[in-house]
Nucleic acid binder design. Structure first.
Lengths: 200, 200
DNA sequence: AAATGATTTAACCATTTGGTTAATTTTTAA
DNA sequence: TTAAAAATTAACCAAATGGTTAAATCATTT
């Protein structure tokens, strides 16, 4: 493991645990077991180190499910597939949502927002939506509000994870299980919302 | 306006904007237009000042909708009413969700979580759920997962607000309008999920 | 008006923090 | 083998930060 890799690994941990303001360069150095000056030698400043981590992590959380989504015909199936794939990632990196959310909420610094690759959604999501809507395969909902809802249902438990764990008294393992079970529940909700009522 | 009130008002702003770690005592003092020493004179420490603000704000975000909810008969109506009332608060205090979420995600300090008054949900929410489930008025969903979903759908747009504003290019006013419209959409989703399929 | 207690201020302090530097060790290349 | 380049370290620095203090001002009571 190179010094640079050790730094990145440690920085990931510390930034994700404490956020930008709460993170300390010394703590990153300690965890990487290197001299603090090395941080600046490799990444110049805290800001630039953070940028590096953020960009890398964004790539993980906004993966290229897009391509695979194309192979699903209907809009409903696409959304269900998205939830499934997305939960694989979320369960593996449960801290990621808070890291992203806390970063984009940083005052006076919306330049991080522009790094979010939201293009993939527009393309496949909306196109497929209007196509299925016209052919009557799905109910007429507001596509934007629906998309935000799916995202919200999916991500929220990971943002409120500390509260959930404390309130219902579960550990990481049990939380993970609960989220695993959640996949089918969410897919069911999506189908119930999107499946048109039978006016026969 | 007393000095104490000026401090609280300023502290609210600064803590909500920057979070605990990002907040500066000097900035709070400046905004309150008082000497920094006054902060400690009235609240001893940053930690205690934050505690005060947090407790006060929690009371706003977790209001006593409970009582009014009792007057609604069915579970579905209760949930819809909850969304309605909750959005009144969220639209008025759009920063609150991030403030709460970022606080409960603070490392090594889960004592804030215990201040969240979640009792109100259990009482009315779950009781009414099982009652309606037995009488076949609602579909059999997982009540816990459903509750988290409703919370998630409701709160998430306020957490991703900066991203939403940037991505679809809207201002505060337009965001507010979008959230106003969202109420009916969410109520609709809830009904679609909960209304049992007709097996006639 | 004088004494008392509460409030406010300016100056100060110790610690922490991100960042730098100059010297040293390790690696690479000639 | 040795000189140059890269990597690493310890010591250091200036600025920022939460917090303190002692003096000053203001309000209240007698």
């Amino acid at each position: 493991m190179t010094t640079e890799e050790k730094i990145i690994k440690a920085a990931e941990e510390v930034f994700i645990e404490h956020g930008y303001d709460g993170a300390r360069m010394q703590e990153i150095a300690d965890r990487a077991e290197i001299n603090k000056a090395m941080l600046h030698y490799y990444f110049r400043s805290k800001e630039m180190l953070f940028e590096k981590i953020f960009e890398e992590k964004v790539k993980v959380v906004f993966p290229t499910i897009s391509e695979q989504m194309k192979s699903y015909e209907g809009f409903t199936d696409k959304v269900c597939f998205f939830i499934e794939q997305y939960y694989d990632i979320l369960i593996k990196y449960p801290f990621m949502p808070f890291f992203i959310i806390s970063t984009i909420n940083r005052k006076d610094d919306k330049h991080f927002i522009k790094k979010l690759p939201f293009g993939f959604m527009k393309e496949i999501f909306f196109e497929s939506f209007f196509s299925d809507l016209q052919s009557g395969k799905i109910r007429e909902v507001n596509p934007f509000q629906f998309a935000v809802s799916v995202m919200g249902m999916s991500i929220f438990p990971f943002l409120s994870r500390p509260a959930m764990k404390e309130l219902i008294g579960i550990n990481d393992e049990q939380f993970q299980l609960l989220m695993q079970q959640r996949i089918d529940e969410l897919k069911n909700y999506v189908k119930l919302i999107l499946t048109p009522t039978n006016h026969a």
